[in-house]
Deep mutational scan, measured.
Amino acid sequence: MLEGKVKWFNSEKGFGFIEVEGQDDVFVHFSAIQGEGFKTLEEGQAVSAEIVEGNRGPQAANVTKEA
């Protein structure tokens, strides 16, 4: 698991990027966000996630919002 913060997230398109210190930004799709209801993230929000290899490079999986 790694910790980072949301760089930006487009709720209409359902994707965005997470900033991780010392690494390239990581793509995040709404389907990777854990929880019930409408899955979205806010800019600057702290999150933790796993990194997996997607079709277009590294992407976030099992994204959870930090308190």
Rank of each mutant, 00 (worst) to 15 (best):
V52R: 10
K5A: 03
K7R: 10
G14C: 05
K13M: 09
T64I: 15
G37I: 04
E53A: 13
E36H: 11
V26E: 00
K13P: 01
W8P: 00
R56T: 07
W8K: 01
A60L: 05
E3L: 14
A60D: 02
N10C: 11
E3I: 15
T40V: 08
A61C: 11
G35P: 01
S11A: 13
V26Y: 05
L41N: 01
G37L: 04
V20T: 05
A60G: 05
A60E: 02
A60Q: 02
V28I: 07
E66C: 14
L41A: 00
G57P: 04
V20G: 02
L41G: 02
W8Q: 01
E50R: 13
K5L: 09
F9C: 07
S31I: 06
G16W: 02
K13Y: 08
H29S: 02
A49F: 15
A61P: 02
E43K: 15
G14Q: 01
K65E: 05
K65D: 04
N62D: 04
G54Y: 05
L2M: 11
Q34I: 15
S31C: 10
E43M: 14
V63P: 02
A67C: 12
V52W: 09
K65W: 09
F38I: 07
Q59F: 11
Q45G: 06
G16A: 03
H29T: 00
Q23V: 09
N62F: 11
S31A: 06
G37T: 04
K13R: 10
V47F: 00
F38E: 07
V47A: 03
E43I: 15
N55R: 15
E12N: 11
F38A: 07
H29D: 07
V28N: 04
I33R: 00
E36S: 12
G4I: 03
V28G: 04
E43C: 15
F15T: 00
V47D: 01
N55P: 15
G22A: 05
N62R: 14
F27W: 04
E43D: 09
I51N: 04
Q34K: 10
K39I: 07
E42N: 10
E50D: 10
E21K: 12
G14P: 00
Q59V: 11
E43S: 14
I18L: 09
T40Y: 12
S48A: 10
L2D: 03
H29C: 09
V52A: 07
R56C: 13
E36K: 11
V26C: 08
Q23W: 14
R56M: 09
F30S: 08
H29V: 03
A67P: 13
K65N: 07
E19H: 11
A61G: 09
E43V: 15
E66V: 15
G22Y: 05
M1G: 09
F15W: 15
E66K: 15
L41H: 01
G37Q: 04
D24P: 15
N55E: 13
I33D: 06
V26L: 14
A60W: 03
F27V: 00
G22N: 08
D24Y: 11
F38H: 08
K39G: 05
F9Q: 03
F9K: 02
E53L: 14
P58H: 08
N10I: 04
F27A: 00
E12L: 13
E19I: 11
I33V: 08
E3P: 13
V20D: 01
E21N: 10
T64L: 13
G14D: 01
E43H: 14
E12Y: 11
T40K: 07
E12G: 09
Q23R: 14
K65Y: 10
T40D: 05
G44R: 04
A46S: 12
A61V: 13
D25N: 08
H29A: 00
D24R: 14
D25G: 04
Q45L: 07
M1E: 07
A67S: 13
E21G: 08
G16D: 00
P58N: 07
R56D: 06
E21H: 11
M1A: 11
K7T: 03
Q45N: 07
S31E: 08
A61Y: 08
I51M: 09
E3F: 14
K5S: 06
E66P: 11
E66G: 15
G37C: 10
E19Y: 11
V6P: 02
M1N: 09
G37E: 06
A49Q: 03
F30K: 09
K5H: 11
D25Y: 07
A32W: 06
K13S: 08
I51S: 03
G14A: 00
S48M: 15
Q59S: 07
K65S: 09
E36I: 11
G44E: 03
A67D: 12
N10E: 04
F30V: 09
K39P: 06
L41R: 00
V6W: 00
F30N: 07
F30P: 07
K65A: 11
L2Y: 10
V47T: 01
V26Q: 00
D24G: 14
F9A: 02
V47Q: 00
V20L: 10
E21A: 12
R56H: 10
E53D: 10
F30I: 09
A60V: 06
K39L: 11
T40F: 12
G4H: 02
L2Q: 09
I51H: 03
G16N: 00
V6C: 07
V6N: 03
F27G: 00
V47G: 03
E21V: 12
G44H: 06
E50W: 10
F38L: 07
E42Q: 12
N55C: 15
E3T: 14
Q34D: 09
D24E: 13
S11F: 10
A49K: 02
T40P: 03
A46H: 14
K7Y: 02
K13Q: 08
E19T: 13
R56V: 07
E53M: 15
S31Y: 05
S31K: 05
G16T: 01
L2T: 10
G35F: 07
V6M: 03
V28D: 07
S11Q: 13
Q59Y: 13
F17H: 01
P58W: 11
F17Y: 08
N62E: 05
F38G: 05
E19A: 14
D25C: 12
G54T: 14
Q34C: 14
G35H: 07
A32V: 09
E36P: 11
G37F: 06
F9H: 02
G14V: 01
V28E: 06
A61S: 10
I51G: 02
K5Y: 10
F17C: 08
K39T: 05
A32L: 01
E19D: 06
E43P: 15
L41T: 00
G35W: 08
K5D: 01
F15S: 03
A60T: 03
G4Q: 01
A32R: 01
V20S: 05
S31N: 07
F9T: 02
A32Q: 10
Q23N: 09
T64C: 10
V52L: 08
G54L: 07
Q45K: 04
G57T: 02
Q45R: 06
A60Y: 01
E42G: 08
V28H: 04
V26R: 00
E53C: 15
E19C: 14
F30E: 07
G14W: 03
G16Y: 03
I18K: 00
T64M: 13
T64H: 13
N62T: 10
M1R: 15
V6Y: 00
D24T: 10
A60C: 06
V20N: 03
